[in-house]
Amino acid sequence: MKYYVNVTAYYVLLGNSRFHYSEKHVLWNPSTRREMYIECPYAYNEAYKLNYGICYDRLTDDFKVVLVIDDRYAIYSCKNNSWSEKKLGIKYYGFFTGIFVDGATYWVLRDDKHTIQIVYFDPRTDELKGLQKPEQLNSDCNSGLTISVACLRENMCLYSVSGEGDDDMLRFRIWRKEKGIGAGGNPNWEELLTFEIRKPRDWWLGVLCFVENKILIRLDEKTFVYYSPTEKTFEEIDGNEAHNLYSTYCSELVRYRNSLYFPVQAETRSIS
């Protein structure tokens, strides 16, 4: 079984396919090595693109699995051992895994007009809602712009990357959302960082997490770098440490620091 999705503080969600609907899933606790098998009862087409997420509801002390499929979403409650399904007034497209941060799970998806949308699951109401983007990203007609979400020091962050065409540089911009679940759908965004790095041949990007005072960034399938905001320098992670950060079947790195997944001291080399 290939793992495809985000984590909370305790669980990793595993499944058979990252891109398409899969009815069978596993919740795994890495610290205890215990797992729980769940099976979605709804008859979804396997050709559907599926967006997965896992969320913790502090009010009810309940872990919830969320499957966003086309114009509906399914919710599994671990506490009640039950599934429920809700309809959406809009179709969402993509095959992304959500990130759980600051009490909610967030995705970047496209609607039926192909507009980039930030969507979040509120575990208090079991509702899927939209979130306003930073003003600088409201005109997202640039086909060369990649937008995604990240958890940086327990803050929900949004980042964009541009660099299509003959330009040999990638330009990163990172924003931080104000604290609070959804913040009423129209949160304040603070721009944290802007920086550039030379474009890899086959880039596959991800802003992953802070390691001490540096940001871990994935540039392509097997290349990871640390970026120092204070020194404005990059260090590439060498050898086995980089290999351990990536699995052939996994495009989402699990955000555990100094744990089962994350190297305590990775060897690095400076890059321009």
Rank of each mutant, 00 (worst) to 15 (best):
M1Q: 11
T8D: 12
Y10W: 09
Y10R: 12
V12F: 09
V12H: 05
L13G: 03
G15T: 02
N16A: 15
R18W: 15
F19Y: 15
Y21K: 01
Y21S: 01
V26C: 09
S31E: 15
E35F: 12
E35N: 13
E35S: 15
Y37I: 08
E39T: 11
P41L: 04
Y42G: 00
A43S: 12
A43M: 08
A43P: 06
N45A: 10
E46M: 08
E46D: 13
E46P: 14
Y48R: 03
K49V: 09
L50A: 14
G53M: 03
Y56Q: 13
D57M: 04
R58L: 07
L59E: 14
T60I: 13
D61A: 09
D62E: 14
F63Y: 12
V65C: 01
D71S: 09
D71V: 00
R72E: 01
R72D: 01
R72F: 00
R72L: 00
Y73W: 02
Y73R: 00
Y73V: 00
Y73S: 00
A74M: 01
A74V: 00
S77E: 14
C78R: 14
S82V: 06
E85M: 01
K87S: 02
K87W: 01
T97K: 12
T97F: 13
I99N: 06
F100A: 05
V101L: 07
V101G: 05
G103F: 04
G103Y: 05
A104V: 09
T105H: 12
L109S: 07
Q117I: 05
Y120H: 05
F121N: 02
P123N: 07
R124F: 05
R124A: 07
R124L: 10
E127P: 03
L128F: 03
G130E: 02
K133T: 10
E135L: 15
Q136A: 14
C141D: 15
S143Y: 13
L145T: 15
I147G: 02
V149E: 03
A150N: 03
L152R: 02
E154T: 10
E154M: 07
N155M: 12
Y159N: 00
Y159E: 03
V161E: 01
S162K: 05
S162V: 06
G163H: 06
E164P: 02
E164V: 08
D168H: 13
F172Q: 03
F172D: 03
R176I: 09
K177H: 02
K179A: 11
G180F: 04
A183L: 05
N188L: 12
W189G: 01
L192N: 03
L193C: 08
T194F: 14
F195I: 08
F195S: 10
F195D: 07
I197Y: 04
K199F: 05
W204T: 11
W204Q: 15
V207R: 00
V207H: 01
V207C: 02
E212Q: 09
N213G: 06
K214H: 14
L219Y: 02
L219F: 08
D220W: 03
D220E: 08
F224E: 01
Y226K: 08
F234W: 07
F234C: 08
I237A: 01
D238A: 15
D238C: 11
E241T: 04
A242L: 06
N244W: 15
N244K: 13
Y246P: 08
Y249A: 14
S251Q: 10
S251T: 12
L253R: 15
R255Y: 15
Y256A: 10
S259A: 15
S259H: 14
F262W: 10
Q265L: 10
A266E: 01
A266F: 05
T268I: 06
R269D: 07
S270M: 14
